[in-house]
Amino acid sequence: MMPGDIIGHEFVGEIVETGREVKTLKKGDRVVVSSMISCGQCRYCKHQEWSLCDNSNPKGALQEPLFGFSTSGIYGYSHLFGGYAGAQAEYVRIPYADYGAIKIPEGLTDEQALPISDAFPTGLMGADLCNIKRGDIVAVWGCGPVGQFTIRSAYMLGAERVIAIDRVPERLKMAREQSGADTINYEEVGAGEALKEMTGGRGPDACIDAVGLEAHGMGFMGAYDEVKQAVKLSIDRPYVIRQMILACRKGGTLSIMGVYAGFLDKMPMGAAFSKGLTLKMGQMFGQKYIPMLLDRAVKGEIDPSYVFTHQMPLDQAKQAYETFKHKKDNCIKVVLKP
């Protein structure tokens, strides 16, 4: 990140201008925009692996030493991911608009459509990666907005039961009341033991890491700075992954949607190996999931607006960040209105 970079990657709005090659959109269209910037033409986009786009990251060379290959650009998410200006602003430029901006169907409010830009598809992909089968019990670490949508998505995809793990009572309450999850407050009981007892001694069939996304702005800058300095680093929050590896049932799946950038220490690979786990992960494939979520929303099957606890004018963004970061005032998610 550099001083002056505009942040924000989750947004809805109205098209005011289009480039000459944009075919599917016109001025005045109300759109929701995937946080991932994807060209729509490369091998990965054509396989619906939108966040792995070959072409949308103008600064992909920065990623290669770290990741081996470059991935897609992301709005307002550091220069490692393209240095694109973000959307916590009055206007934003959308590259590859035909693919990135998706028209909002009639009848949906901004608050209903907004989470479909990033948080909901991330949660849906987190659940989708678990290959949920009949009777499966899914454990979700983290009950922030992504966690809430992960829980909802796991039920949508047929989970028998979802167990949500967090330490913030309001978030656990939302998980219970909005999605019907069972909950564990990990400050009160050991999550691993509790999960074992709650699953008949078997362990959850799948474990999803939905922690840390809401705080990634800070975490990521830290990561990037350290990368730049070529310092030996272990900057991610590996605690959740460690706990998931131990808590998951044998032969189960870990789905990792919490953002990781650097290196992981103290990874219990012996446990993962001995239990034959499958680890799945990745930045979300927004364009793959957004249309189906809009469809469900317009049919009234989901109303994603329930995660918003705060609405503030864009002018008060700084204060909103503070409230959100410290989870003050029972804050779960903030919508900024320009």
């Binding site: 089968k133 499966d136 028998e160 001694g201």
Partner: peptide, 11 residues
């Protein structure tokens, strides 16, 4: 009963 075809939970 455990979910689906997973047997019986004994507590």
């Amino acid at each position: 009963p455990a979910p689906s075809d997973r047997g019986t939970e004994v507590k």
